[in-house]
Nucleic acid binder design. Sequence first.
DNA 1: AATTAGCTGTCAGTTTCACGTCAGCTTGAT
DNA 2: ATCAAGCTGACGTGAAACTGACAGCTAATT
Lengths: 226, 226
Amino acid sequence: MRLLLVEDDLILKDGLERSFVKSGYAVDVISDGEGANKLLTYQEYDVIVLDLGLPKLSGFEVLKRLRARGSNTPVLILTALEDTQNRVKGLDLGADDYLTKPFELAELEARVRALIRRGVSGGSAKISFGDLTFDTTNRQCMAGDIALSLSARELALLELLMLKASKVVSKAKIMEHLCSWDDEISENAVEVIVSRLRKKLNVFDIEIRTIRGLGYLLAKLENQNP
Amino acid sequence: MRLLLVEDDLILKDGLERSFVKSGYAVDVISDGEGANKLLTYQEYDVIVLDLGLPKLSGFEVLKRLRARGSNTPVLILTALEDTQNRVKGLDLGADDYLTKPFELAELEARVRALIRRGVSGGSAKISFGDLTFDTTNRQCMAGDIALSLSARELALLELLMLKASKVVSKAKIMEHLCSWDDEISENAVEVIVSRLRKKLNVFDIEIRTIRGLGYLLAKLENQNP
DNA sequence: AATTAGCTGTCAGTTTCACGTCAGCTTGAT
DNA sequence: ATCAAGCTGACGTGAAACTGACAGCTAATT
């Protein structure tokens, strides 16, 4: 899952980024409104965490323009405690949730997860496909009642494939979802992750099918059309 | 999705066309205002990318006449950087978005996508014909809820045929659509691709009919005139 | 500091398979 | 009957994908 963090406070910025990365998000961080606005014209995210007090272009303006372009990416805004007025204004402009500083890290993460859930899987914390159930809250994948032991990368890939189950996901899309802007990986790296994940999945009733030249898709074994 | 690109700069024209085609749009390109205006009187598009500086008839005039005919097709105009005045004029005339040169390719594509989403097409980038639904966003063809497993070439051909459903598509047009301009394929190659695609489609209620000497057309099986 | 263990990207050698070509056949028009 | 257009099974090729081995990195432990 790809997340954009727009925040100018140095300490907060670093702390949040590290924490999100650790939780398996691909995180881009930007500290001014102008840059954020520009970035958002051509880069899609799964969720945006937006501080309202920003240099150059206010968080309001960033949000307003994002919505004006027709995007419905979930946005969580961060406001100061006393700033009820602005909070309301933000929600009016199309923010999906807010959090007042100071806040608990765990709460922010929980709310971000909730936003992603709401946008993508119809509100459920769990995605099921075949034998497998992906639990987005604990970030683990279960087969029945036992948890698969997957690495962070494998987990992120499986999450993406399960979200788009039965749809073709291109390597470019995968790279985009697994990596933030400053760490790029090769196409081959994706192939390697797929290979490793396949090994761990081959006892179940699903498979990662290769569509040569286009990408991969998650399919149930029985649904083969030769 | 069908896109009209009106641009006279040779290099830009080719680059944009290739990029849009690669992203799965059916692209028509025309380089003068008069031709564009004429074309738009009888051909509908899902989105139009319009350069303002054009020979013969200015982009303004093309846009003005399009709106005068009552069309609400989304239009994105391209302007020179310093040309604020014209940009405003364009938006007044009914353009839906603008981009100043030079621009990022990714940004143009994102804005075009946004326009299509926002537009009258209701956001569903899907073409249906008979049993089949072609999902241009995910680039795959569904029969009910199962995805056909088609190769890249077969997919591209089917997309073209479905876009022009019930209309004759010449081999030349097909070759043009399947190949970028430095790799050419023989007419026979097209025949082979048609043959392979037919095999995969013959369980459904549509067929690829051969019109000897002219090309192919996609037709529903019941509509046979014997 | 050193060691260990697990994760992950790169590389290189191998395998796979989509697609264009070809050749021989079928169809249809005149 | 003749010829051109189209169809399709077979085949070779090269690009795409797979995967075992390895090395760099991080985090945890000693």
